[in-house]
Design a protein around this nucleic acid. Structure first.
Ligand SMILES: [Mn+2]
Ligand SMILES: [Mn+2]
Ligand SMILES: [Mn+2]
Ligand SMILES: [Mn+2]
Lengths: 217, 217
DNA sequence: CATAAAATTTAGACAAATCTAAAAATTTGT
DNA sequence: ACAAATTTTTAGATTTGTCTAAATTTTATG
């Protein structure tokens, strides 16, 4: 497994659920910040090596073998993000880039010991579930805030977009994982939402509500 | 800086002190487990980029710029080794290979935070000094056990060879960094040495004594 | 359904890092 | 000192991952 192959597997894994069929060449090229022709070459290679299914012009999907590797990389990525936040005092908007590098370190023992050192965390700093060592992922029962109804009592449990800009916006408005609030008003005109959080009212746009995962409590 | 360039700079840095002149192509090839022709190519590149001095057939030395990068890689390598031993319960013979990967992770903040998290260690698990963030290295006053005289009271402060086999031999014989012992006899015939350590006598060969660093106390 | 547009693949090239084999320079040994 | 041995460099090829430009296939549209 080369670094590039690992990154492609991860990208395919993330894109697969967004499209009933296989992942398209252009979608992968966009995700990987590369050209469609490069994607075709790599997809062909992954397919020859048994990590992906691919028929010309028909998009790509992962084999079980490919999926297993992708999940393993994601597990490492998220464990490292927990390490950076919980042990090295990184904030949640600073960890992704470093985790992108750390996820490729190869050592079974390193990851199992890190997992133990972090006391077997189940979620990363963005609320995403950490696959266990067998690849099982505990999916949480969460919805987008934009789906919540007026009067719902919510707990923030994750973010859809984990860009630094969005996370900093949340910080500025004192919204973090675990924050509790009530949907006090939904404005039909622009789909903005007023939430009551820690005794203050906060109006947030539909851009925000459609990137925040919550659990109704 | 590519991964390969970093590894060459580190190798040159380690070999430079062993040879008054520049580091030879063959020595570098041996250290890097590669062919002399590959070394020539890389040395030419490092030289063009200003990391090394190189005149055809005359060996290679580092520029200050190259030395700075090499020291930075070594700093990261040794900090990660401390992390693996002190926090993740690796033993000192298991850390090198993983640190070889971790040393190439690029993040200023990661290293400064890791340094703080480890409480600013000065030496790695093998007794080697950890350069500070400015590149300064605190050289210790240590000698090889083979240089010690009969009657000398020693404290083990480092290893010359940090191969897994050697470190496991030391473990087996309960010799660790910080162990104190006295040189009770030096056998002229084979240069083996008898040491008195924790109330037992231990005979060790000249292979061992010439790979153990001690401080005379 | 027949083109036009868009997506995808192929062909050919390139940079990085390596290799083998051959040539050139240096060092060694008598 | 000079031929032989050794070391180092060069020349040319290979692999990986990328690119541009052209060809092909699929999808959209009148
Ligand atoms: Mn991330
Ligand atoms: Mn994350
Ligand atoms: Mn090491
Ligand atoms: Mn070490």
């Amino acid at each position: 497994m080369t670094l590039s192959e690992e990154n492609y597997l991860k990208a395919i894994y993330h894109l697969e659920p967004l499209s009933k069929k296989g992942v398209t060449t252009n979608a992968l090229a966009e995700e990987m910040q590369t050209k469609a022709s490069s994607v075709t070459d790599m997809v062909k290679k992954l397919s020859e090596k048994g990590y992906a299914h691919h028929k010309k012009y028909q998009g790509v999907t992962l084999t079980n073998k490919g999926k297993g590797i992708a999940i393993d990389i994601i597990r490492k990525h998220r464990l490292w993000e927990v390490f950076l936040v919980n042990k090295l005092n990184f904030s949640w908007d600073e960890v992704h880039e470093v985790a992108e590098q750390l996820e490729h370190i190869k050592s079974k023992k390193l990851i199992s010991q890190l997992d133990a050192f972090l006391e077997f965390p189940t979620h990363d700093p963005h609320g995403d579930p950490i696959p266990d060592k067998t690849g099982k992922i505990n999916t949480v029962d969460k919805i987008l805030l934009s789906e919540a109804k007026t009067g719902d009592h919510c707990i923030c449990v994750g973010v859809q977009d984990s860009s630094s800009n969005f996370l900093k916006y949340l910080d500025k408005n004192k919204i973090a994982l675990g924050s509790a609030f009530e949907v006090s008003h939904k404005e039909p005109f622009d789909n903005s939402v007023t939430i009551r959080i820690e005794n203050r009212d906060l109006i947030i746009s539909n851009i925000i509500t459609s990137n925040l995962f919550v659990k109704i409590s």
